[in-house]
Amino acid sequence: MAAQVFAYIVHKNGVADDTALELVSAARNIFPDTSPTAIVTGSGTDLDGVCNDLAASFGEVWKFDHEALAYPNAEAIRKLLMAVLPADAVVLFPHDTFGMDLAPGLSIKLNSVFVSDAAGFEGLDGNNLKVIRQEYSGQVSTHLMADISAGAVINVRPGIFQPDESRSAGGQVVDKSSKIGDLSVGRRFLEVVEAEAGDVDITKEDILVSVGRGIEDQDNIEIAEELAEAVGGVVSCSRPIVDAKWLEKPRQVGTSGQTVKPKVYMALGISGSFQHMGGIKGNPYIIAVNKNLKAPIFQIADVGVVEDLLDFVPVLTEKIQEGK
C-alpha cells in the first residue's frame, strides 16, 4: 500500500528544527520510495524561509499561514489537519512536547492508530507496520504491529533517524492557507516564560559531573561536588534531582533543561533516557557509573563502571586528589 506520508515541521525563528529532516528518513524507513509532504504552520515572513529551506527535501511543502497559527496551538492545528489530511494519511510528528500535545488526540479524531515514541521501523507486512519502541526507561525494547489500513499518527523519537542529505526530492511550496477553516480553541495561548538562569552556567563548562536518581539522597550530592572539584568541573543533574529540589533547575541537563556541550560528561546514577541525552551535544567523552549493566546509558557511553556510585566515586575522588 502507498499511503501519503506527512511530516509536521517544528520551527522557530525562521529555522526548521533538526527533526524535520529526521522525519524524512523515518518516512523512508516505512515506505522506501516515499517523498513525504511537509506541513508548515505559522504566520508571517518567517514561514517562507522555513518552507523554502525544506522544499528540496520533501515531495511538497504545504504552507499554512494565519495569524491564529503564529504560536503552535495543538488544538487549532488539530482542527486544521482534520480538514486537510486524506483519510488514510500517515502523519509523523517529533516526540517532543508539541507532538505529545497534539498527536494522541489527532489519532482519535482521524480514527487511525497511534504509535508513540517510535525508535525504529521494521517494514510493512500488508497493512501491518512493525515498530520498535523502548519501554521501562529503555531497559527493554518491544516490537509492535500497527494496523495502518485507516492511516496512522506516529510520534518519532528525536535523534534516532539520521538525515540523508544525499537524496533530493525537489519539492515545491504550495500555499494551502485558503483551506484554513475554523481555528477556535478551548485552550488559549498566553505567553512563554523563559527559564531562569542560575548561579553557574553548565552550558559553558568543559567538564560536567552529572548526578541522577542513583545518588539516592540529597546528602550524597556532596560526593559529586567533591569529584567535580577534584577534576575542575561542575555538577549538573537529571530531572528527578530537580524535581526533588536537591539541585536548582538551571543544573538540569535534557530536553526540558539545558543543552550542554562539554568535552567530558560523567553520568553518575543516570539511566540515559532520551530526554536526558537529548540535552548533550557535541559528542563528548561520556563516562557512566551505574550499578545496572542493562541501563541504556551503557549503550551510549564511551566507558562504563558497573558499581555502586556511593562506593566508587569517593575512591575515584581520593585517587585524583592523591595524584595532584
Partner: peptide, 29 residues
C-alpha cells in the same frame, strides 16, 4: 487493538561502552 504488542527483546549492544574491570582502586586508576 489496532496496535498489538508482538514481543519484548533486548536490543543488540552496538559498540557500547568499554566496561572497566577490577577493584574500585584499579578501575579508578
Amino acid at each position: 487493538a489496532g496496535v498489538k504488542r508482538v514481543d519484548y527483546f533486548v536490543p543488540e549492544f552496538g559498540e557500547g561502552a568499554e566496561i572497566l574491570e577490577g577493584s574500585d582502586e584499579e578501575i579508578a586508576e
